[in-house]
């Protein structure tokens, strides 16, 4: 198995795909962090202005304690993990497309170990992408946010942890879908369409029908819940008194509407990834390589 993992890792480093996707990942993460940092800064500036102070005291809240930046961090991570997902999606689809899968199977004791080694290598890559995303987001958010709205070290660590975790899970999800679809274009289009458009539409419908709790079970809802839940609980734990009505709005703000606790969200998403991977595994296992 060690040999196969080494082989699979070499496959990823001997073509340009990893850095071809790493560059937009870092740029997108950094850009979103800069943007969201700036937006939330404007919001908190407004909340701290004399006009809003009255409102704040009326609502019995203290906006100066609000770490608005955590929402920006969560949102930026969610967007940037699209790229590791695509990277994972191409893992098996590309091999089938390039016909390198033939030699891969001819040099592996069996298909299970070949695919297993691939999964392990892509989990590693998911972590590498995750670290790059967290670093880019952290720098971006720090540049545009007030020091007061940034999370403390513990909060940052928690966000960084779920950020890397969600990147890993997104990569695994991609590997699973790619194994099932076996087409490079198909995998890329389906993953992007679903994650960026289809599920957002479903979420809107569910939210408007008063069924937001279902969102937490959907793939995108679950993975967003991972970072979003941590962000909103961080915010709530530091914000002092927050009216009940505002909690739900804050969770939506964080991209975690209807999501469960971070660990439960992660578990749900892991189940989705596992389902696709097992499906793709089963399909590849029996597939005639011609």
């Amino acid at each position: 198995m060690g040999n196969l993992i080494k082989s699979e890792f070499r496959k990823t480093t001997t073509t340009g795909l990893w850095w071809g996707l790493m560059i937009p990942t870092v740029l997108l993460a950094f850009g979103w962090a800069l943007g969201t940092g700036a937006i939330f800064k404007t919001v908190s500036d407004f909340m701290n202005s004399s006009d809003a102070e009255e409102l704040a005291s009326l609502l019995n809240v203290d906006p100066s304690q609000w770490q608005m930046s955590v929402f920006g961090i969560a949102r930026s991570i969610n967007v940037a993990t699209i790229f590791p997902m695509i990277f994972g999606g191409l893992a098996i689809a590309n091999e089938i497309n390039r016909k390198t899968i033939t030699t891969t199977f001819l040099t592996s004791p069996n298909r299970v170990s070949a695919l297993g080694a691939k999964m392990i290598v892509y989990i590693l890559w998911g972590a590498i992408f995750g670290i790059a995303i967290v670093a880019s987001v952290s720098i971006g958010i720090a540049l545009t946010s007030d020091a007061g709205s940034l999370p403390d070290a513990g909060g940052w660590l928690a966000l960084a942890g779920v950020g890397v975790l969600s990147s890993i899970l997104m990569t695994m999800f991609g590997v699973g879908v790619g194994a099932l679809m076996t087409s490079v274009v198909g995998t890329t289009v389906v993953l992007l369409l679903y994650m960026l458009i289809v599920e957002n539409g479903i979420q809107l419908v569910l939210a408007s029908q008063g069924l937001p709790e279902v969102i937490g079970f959907l793939p995108n809802g679950a993975v967003n819940g991972l970072t979003g839940s941590v962000a909103s609980s961080l915010f709530l734990s530091n914000a002092g008194v927050v009216p009940e009505d505002m909690v739900e709005a804050l969770r939506a703000f964080a991209g975690a509407l209807g999501a469960f606790d971070w660990w439960l969200s992660g578990l749900i998403f892991l189940v989705w990834s596992g389902l696709f991977f097992l499906g793709g595994w089963a399909a590849t296992q029996r597939k005639d390589i011609t």
Partner: peptide, 16 residues
């Protein structure tokens, strides 16, 4: 893989 050099191609499978 069209972008992989011959030597790298062989090293990938030598490792396997």
């Amino acid at each position: 893989h069209p972008k992989r050099t011959a030597r790298n191609h062989l090293r990938v499978y030598a490792a396997a």
